Structure formats: structure tokens, C-alpha cells
Simulated assay, not measured.
Amino acid sequence: MDKGKNATVFMKSSNNKIYMELKDIIREHALQFLPAKSLLRCRGVCRDWKYLIATPFFVHNQSYSFRNLSGFFSQSSTSEPSFISLNPIAYGVPDPSLSFLPEPVDIRSSSNGLLCCQGHSGYNPYYICNPATKHWHKLPKPNNDHGSDPAVVLIFEPSILNFAAEYKLVCAFPSELDGYEFEIYSSCEKSWKTSGEIFLGNLKILPRSGVYTNGIVYWAGRNNRILAFDLSAERSQIHNGHGTLGVMDGKFCTASILRQNLSVQLLSNAYANTMQMYSNIKAWESHLFTLDRSVFAEGYPEEVSLLVNDTVILRKGKALYSYNLKTKETKHLGNESDDGKRRVVPYVNSLVDI
């Protein structure tokens, strides 16, 4: 009897060891889902957390786990970059003007915590940087002339199985054959490659309009046309559509203001143009969101600046607003300065190392 009781007590004491303390649970299962700014503050909690956050394995897990839109960089042709946070307490960067780079730059594109910037000197080199850590890398000179305002799209897809931060930079540049060609930089190969694909057609694409999703890069063109380039097949095609290009629920979409509504067109079939004639398959799905006029100063917004998943950035004059497609919440983010038309680039507050 005594031995049986003692054994029970022993097993109970042994089983208690499976329970973790709260600080250990947070360290092992929660920290990696926090944004970079919050993690830099968490380094002051204790020495254990400080060392953990600095390890390459943790940085890799955080860049894979945290994908939330944190804000956007804003820049005009005559100003240095600035950053507007969707939540200043949680999201931020130490140097929004990117003065840690070796020269003044223009922000061209972004992807999951990385920015693509272009310098003003020499051959206008491209820089890939992480503004949260101030780490950067200068790319070699492209093989082709990309023009003064290149249509480049940065592609970085974090993978739990790939420890290195591998990325690509895709540029659609004017061809001598009166169309567009495509040049691709690969961080794996550390070199540029010109695709054999040439798009021939009367189309003028808009720089800095490009987005990427599901293996395809899209650029907005004039006359309500969209140029698409499939990276794996290296084939291009045209879609009809208008508005600001974005990504919603992992699918390519366009967004525009339609009177008092926000109109979102979701591309449900990226290869609709290759279907047989008179096919019943619809290429686009329409979604309409009614905006609350009382939230905006003096009328409804004039344009959509960007759309990333559930978040839309709207512009009314110099005022910028965020609109959540799920909660329908609208928030005034602030006013832009009067130094010209600004372009905005989305940003994810990641620790990704390059």
C-alpha cells in the first residue's frame, strides 16, 4: 500500500515537469510572430530573450511567421523616403529616410520585409535592403537599360525549409522591337538573365505599379490594360482591367473608387485569355464595399493607393486613410506634405537577413 501511494506521488511530481512557465511559452511559441520593432524592445526583457532574438534561426522563423502589412513607405520625386505606420506602437523602422544606404535612393518595390531601392549616381544601381536592421546589398549592373523610372518588382517568398533569404528582381523594359522584354536578377545565381520572351504590342506600362502573386508578375498599363508575366513559363499575356493593382486572399486584384464605394475586381482565372471563345468561365469576381462618408474630410476618397490582403490605403487630397475589408474599419493615418505627388510602397516589419 505504501509503495503504491509513493509511486502515485512520484508520477504526479514527474508529470508536473511537462508544464512550461509562461515566459518559456512566450519565448518558444509567440515571439516569432511579433514585428521587428516589438522584438527589438523585447531584447531588454532578459538576457535569454536578447540572445534568442539575435540568433539566425530565430530571425529565419520570424521572417516566415510574420507577414502582416505594417505600413508603407512614401516618397515623391523631390523628397527622401518617409514611413507611415499602421500602428506606431508595434511597427516601425529606425531610419525611415534610409540614410544608412551609401547614397540617396528612390524606393522602387518591396516584398515581405525587403525593399528594392535605386541610387542616383553612376549607372543608378539597385540596392536590396531591410530597413528594420539596416542591412543592405548592392546588385550588379543589369545587362539592359531599364530606363530612368524602371518597372521593377521585387519577389521574396520566405520558406520554412529554405534558411537563406532568396529573392528575385524582375524588370519589364522597353524593347527595340517596340514592345517589352524582361530581365530577372536571382540572388541564388547572383546575376541577371534576360528572358527569351518579348511582348509585342502597343502598350505603355506604368512604373511602380507592379505586383506579384502565385508565380505571376503584373503591371498596370494605359487604356485599362494589364501586362502579366509568368515567371516559371516565361510567357506574357494581356488582361483587361483598371484601377490600382493589389493582392487579396492570395489572388491578383484591382481596386478603384466608384462613387461612394470601393470596387475590388478579383482575378479568379489568371489564364482566362487562353480559354476557348465563348467559354462560360468568368475571369473576374466583383466585390463592392460601401464607404462611410462621415469618416472622410469633405467627401469620399479620390483614389486607391494600394491594396494588400485585408488592408486598403485610400487617398483624399493630402489625407491618407486605411480601410479594413473584413472589419470595415476606417482610420485616418495622417496627411502628406505638399512636395508633389507621392508614391507608396507596402512594408512588412520583418527581421529577414540578407
Score class of each variant (00 low, 15 high):
residue 1 M to Q: 13
residue 2 D to F: 14
residue 3 K to L: 14
residue 7 A to H: 15
residue 8 T to L: 15
residue 10 F to G: 12
residue 11 M to T: 11
residue 17 K to D: 14
residue 21 E to L: 13
residue 33 F to A: 05
residue 34 L to A: 03
residue 34 L to T: 02
residue 35 P to W: 02
residue 38 S to M: 09
residue 39 L to G: 00
residue 43 R to M: 11
residue 46 C to G: 11
residue 51 Y to I: 14
residue 51 Y to R: 14
residue 52 L to F: 11
residue 52 L to P: 01
residue 52 L to H: 05
residue 59 V to P: 00
residue 64 Y to Q: 09
residue 65 S to F: 07
residue 66 F to N: 00
residue 67 R to W: 08
residue 74 S to C: 14
residue 75 Q to D: 09
residue 77 S to Y: 12
residue 79 S to K: 08
residue 82 S to L: 10
residue 83 F to C: 05
residue 87 N to D: 14
residue 88 P to K: 12
residue 90 A to L: 13
residue 93 V to P: 00
residue 95 D to I: 12
residue 100 F to P: 04
residue 107 I to R: 01
residue 107 I to A: 02
residue 108 R to L: 09
residue 109 S to Q: 05
residue 109 S to W: 02
residue 109 S to N: 06
residue 112 N to Y: 04
residue 115 L to Y: 03
residue 115 L to E: 01
residue 116 C to S: 08
residue 117 C to M: 09
residue 118 Q to M: 12
residue 119 G to T: 07
residue 125 P to D: 08
residue 126 Y to D: 03
residue 128 I to N: 01
residue 129 C to V: 08
residue 130 N to C: 11
residue 131 P to S: 10
residue 131 P to D: 05
residue 132 A to L: 06
residue 132 A to Q: 03
residue 134 K to V: 06
residue 134 K to D: 05
residue 134 K to P: 02
residue 135 H to N: 14
residue 139 L to E: 06
residue 142 P to H: 05
residue 143 N to W: 13
residue 146 H to W: 07
residue 147 G to N: 10
residue 150 P to F: 02
residue 154 L to G: 01
residue 155 I to D: 00
residue 158 P to S: 10
residue 160 I to T: 13
residue 162 N to A: 15
residue 164 A to D: 12
residue 172 A to E: 02
residue 173 F to A: 05
residue 173 F to W: 08
residue 174 P to D: 09
residue 175 S to W: 06
residue 177 L to K: 10
residue 178 D to F: 13
residue 184 I to G: 00
residue 187 S to V: 08
residue 187 S to P: 08
residue 188 C to A: 14
residue 193 K to P: 07
residue 195 S to F: 07
residue 197 E to A: 10
residue 197 E to F: 06
residue 199 F to G: 00
residue 201 G to Y: 10
residue 202 N to W: 13
residue 203 L to N: 07
residue 203 L to E: 06
residue 205 I to P: 00
residue 207 P to Y: 07
residue 208 R to S: 09
residue 209 S to E: 08
residue 216 I to C: 04
residue 217 V to H: 01
residue 220 A to Q: 04
residue 226 I to Y: 02
residue 226 I to A: 02
residue 230 D to S: 10
residue 232 S to A: 13
residue 239 H to L: 13
residue 242 H to N: 15
residue 245 L to Y: 02
residue 245 L to H: 01
residue 245 L to V: 07
residue 248 M to R: 06
residue 249 D to R: 12
residue 250 G to P: 07
residue 251 K to C: 12
residue 251 K to Q: 11
residue 253 C to Y: 01
residue 261 N to D: 11
residue 262 L to Y: 03
residue 267 L to K: 02
residue 270 A to H: 07
residue 271 Y to T: 11
residue 272 A to T: 09
residue 273 N to Q: 13
residue 274 T to P: 05
residue 275 M to P: 04
residue 283 A to R: 03
residue 283 A to Y: 03
residue 284 W to Y: 10
residue 285 E to V: 08
residue 287 H to Q: 12
residue 290 T to M: 12
residue 292 D to F: 11
residue 294 S to P: 10
residue 295 V to N: 07
residue 295 V to R: 04
residue 296 F to P: 04
residue 296 F to Y: 12
residue 297 A to L: 15
residue 300 Y to F: 12
residue 300 Y to V: 08
residue 302 E to A: 13
residue 302 E to L: 14
residue 309 N to Y: 08
residue 310 D to F: 07
residue 311 T to M: 06
residue 314 L to M: 10
residue 316 K to I: 06
residue 316 K to Y: 06
residue 318 K to E: 15
residue 320 L to K: 00
residue 323 Y to A: 03
residue 329 E to Y: 13
residue 333 L to Y: 04
residue 333 L to M: 10
residue 341 K to C: 15
residue 349 N to T: 09
